[in-house]
Every structure is written in structure tokens, then in C-alpha cells.
Amino acid sequence: MKTNNVFFTAILMASSFLITVGSYAQDRKGPPRGGGHNPEQTKTLEEIGGYKIGDVATDFKLKNVNGNMFSLSDIKNAKGYIVVFTCNECPFAKMYENRLIALHNEYAPKGYSVIAINPNVSESNQNESYGAMQKRAKEKGFTFVYLADEGQKIAPQYGAVRTPHVFILDKERKVQYIGTIDDNARSAEDVKVKYVENAIKALEKDEKPNPSFTKAIGCPVKLAYN
């Protein structure tokens, strides 16, 4: 009898545990995160304006967080450029900071530097001011340049609409890839496709990145020209 009771309790406990776990699992609807869908983009940025794949991107002269002016042409022997429109405050931008540092550290020695540009820089927004940019760069130990697009002169030309928004240029500053860094902003561990890295690897082999255009949810660039 005693044995039975213990047995019964054990089974009851175990099953109630399993049931609760089961019902929890159902709370999150749907298939595994990520998933191998077709990443190919059907649309260019034409409607928004800005560059299309193959366009020659403009160089610029923007103030870096170290106080100096910076241009793409300052990078000697560049094989290409990873131009990233990003900012201080956007949670998506923040989630990618470490990945940008890793990208730069890996690929700058190979000729592909990360060039971060803040299109939302504004002295009236204390979180996106030049001073706040300097602070963020120091805190995070940015190994790449972090430039202030004051007066938003560059972002509209490129067609940056969200942060982070990546434009990979080749040696001739021809746009070879536009889009997102990888397929999982929230969790670097769960990334399945590293779009930017794949694009650079393609360029290194003298191939065209495929896909060359991807989309992502991101913070809207506060476009003055909107």
C-alpha cells in the first residue's frame, strides 16, 4: 500500500510537471526560430532612393569620434569597405556592436574595414550627440571609426533607412551588398546565415555576393528629408 502511494505520488508529480512544461511550450507559437527561408530579395532600394547594387558610392569627409576627419580614401590598400549606418540608442544597433567589432578585427587586416556612420547624430538629442558617440565608442572599445553624419548628408545618398544598415563597397567603391549583418539580431549564437561575412568572402574570391540584398527590422533612420 505504501509502495503504491509513493508510486502514485511520483507519477502524479512527474506527469503534472510534464503537462505544465508541455503547456508552456505551446505558449510560444510556431516553428523554430530562424529557419531556412529564401533570403533573396526581389526589390531594390529604388523606391526609397539611394544606391543600387553596382552604383559607385560617394566618398565623404566626416568627423570621427577621435576628433579627426575621416574619408574612405584614408584607408590605404583597401580591398573594400563595410559601411554601416548605426547609432547609439537603437536596440538593434546595440545588439550588433560586438559583432561589428569582431568583423572589423577579422577583416580589416584583410583589407575590409568597418566604417560606422551615425546618421541620427544630433546635438539636441543627448543620447545621439557627438559627445555621446565618443562615450559609446570608448565604452564598447570600438576598433573601427565611428563617424558623425552631421546634417545627414551621407545617409540619404546611400539610402540608409534603418540602423544598422550595411553597404559593402568594393575597391572601386562600387556597391556590392546592401542589407543586414546576419539573420538573427537578438542572438549571435543562433545565427544561421552571416550575410556580410559571406559577401566579403565572395568579394575575396572575385565573385558577386549572393544574396546581394537583404532586409531586416531595424530602427528607422530619423530622416530629415522624409
Binding site: 533570403p39 534603418r162 543586414t180 542572438s187 527590422i217
Partner: peptide
Amino acid sequence: LDDPDANSWIDKIDPNWSGAIP
């Protein structure tokens, strides 16, 4: 909406959508 690979579904909602919100 929690579906990290946004590139896979943004076009299915609207091919003209860049992914910026609102």
C-alpha cells in the same frame, strides 16, 4: 512578433517594405 530572420518574411508581407517601422 518574434521571428528573428526578418529577411525571410518582410517581402511576404510587402515587397516594398524595407523593414523600417512603423
